[in-house]
């Protein structure tokens, strides 16, 4: 297991390094430059050149990259070019916000989608199955801003049950925060439910048809025990992998939902950093999302190996 973890950590480090290089050089392809973005299109070129010099963005790319990455190894995340603030002061609160929303959405969607998927599989080809699979899929393909706006109109404006913004006032209790986060989390549930339920359904059907399940049934085990011990244990393996791959999206990819609900999370922060070519902020933001993603997939692998002895034994060998 230790070797497995070390290998994964090594691969993660290489992935993060490549990610930082791609993001850095990729952001340089965007037109314009940092000072021009800061001073606006009508600013005098001399002023733009001077500000670029002050910010160090007129230095060669490799030098800018080296300065940033060497600072990173010394614990210095750098200073945001567009906000003139230490990057950690911007990333910290945004990450906390994103984690809160992601966690709340996960807590709602994972049990719901797994339950939905299993029920659909058990009621295969019946009306319940159709409702869950087709309904879930239909909701998934609706763009998240459409879902979000409908939820805001119905629950925020007409019924006046939930706030239309997701950011609770400072010092709010956990319950108040959850109240504010409910609509964006529900939007995410609607976006993710169909996908996760469908994967769970497929895995469950495969397990239900498997020889070991037939054997368990023939052994005379109660249906509930068969499902819990034999079906779920195997059917959840692809579901776990899918859930883990959604973490990157949930932490750093919710630009539309965060904008719609005016929620100061990582998605908006990274997006505006990219727009402004604020590469210290962009790089650090992307790296943090990358780390969260890698940790999530690592945890998924561990869960995978715990659920599936074959993987555990293969790793141990």
């Amino acid at each position: 297991m230790a070797r497995f973890l070390l290998t994964r950590l090594g691969l993660a480090a290489i992935t993060l390094f490549l990610l930082s290089v791609i993001v850095f050089f990729g952001s340089q392809v965007l037109p314009g430059n940092v000072a021009r973005r800061k001073l606006g299109p009508f600013a005098d070129q001399a002023a733009v050149d001077q500000l670029n010099h002050q910010l160090g963005t007129d230095k060669p790319l490799y030098e800018q990259y080296w300065n940033w990455i060497s600072g990173l190894f010394h614990g210095d995340l750098g200073t945001s070019l567009s906000y003139n603030l230490p990057v950690n002061q911007l990333i910290g609160p945004a990450l906390v916000h994103s984690l809160k929303l992601a966690a709340f959405a996960f807590v709602m969607v994972v049990p719901l989608a797994i339950l939905g998927g299993v029920v659909a599989a058990l009621k295969r080809d019946k009306l319940t199955d159709r409702v869950i699979t087709i309904g879930g899929l239909s909701l998934t393909v609706v763009p998240e801003f459409v879902t979000g706006i409908i939820l805001i109109l119905v629950f925020g404006l007409w019924l006046d049950l939930f706030p239309v913004s997701a950011n609770a006032p400072d010092g709010s209790s956990i319950l108040t925060q959850l109240h504010y986060l409910f609509l964006p989390a529900l939007t995410l549930v609607i976006v993710l439910f169909g996908y996760i339920a469908r994967i769970t359904r497929a895995g469950t059907i495969e397990s239900l048809d498997a020889d070991y399940t037939r054997t368990a049934v023939l052994k005379g085990l109660p249906r509930r025990t068969v499902i819990r011990r034999h079906v779920l244990r195997n059917s959840l393996l692809p579901t776990i992998a899918v859930i883990a791959t959604q973490t990157g999206y949930l932490i750093g990819g919710l630009v539309v939902i965060e904008t719609l609900f005016n929620y100061p999370g990582m998605g908006r922060l990274i997006f505006t950093a990219a727009q402004k070519k604020d590469f210290p902020l962009l790089e650090t933001g992307v790296l943090i999302v990358g780390i969260v993603f890698l940790v999530a997939t690592l945890l998924a692998d561990l869960a995978y190996s715990l659920l599936n002895p074959r993987i555990r034994y293969a790793t141990a060998e």
Partner: peptide, 13 residues
């Protein structure tokens, strides 16, 4: 606010 739409919804809400 990053966008105008959420500002307007916030006023209405």
């Amino acid at each position: 606010y990053d966008e105008e739409g959420p500002m307007i919804l916030a006023l209405q809400g």
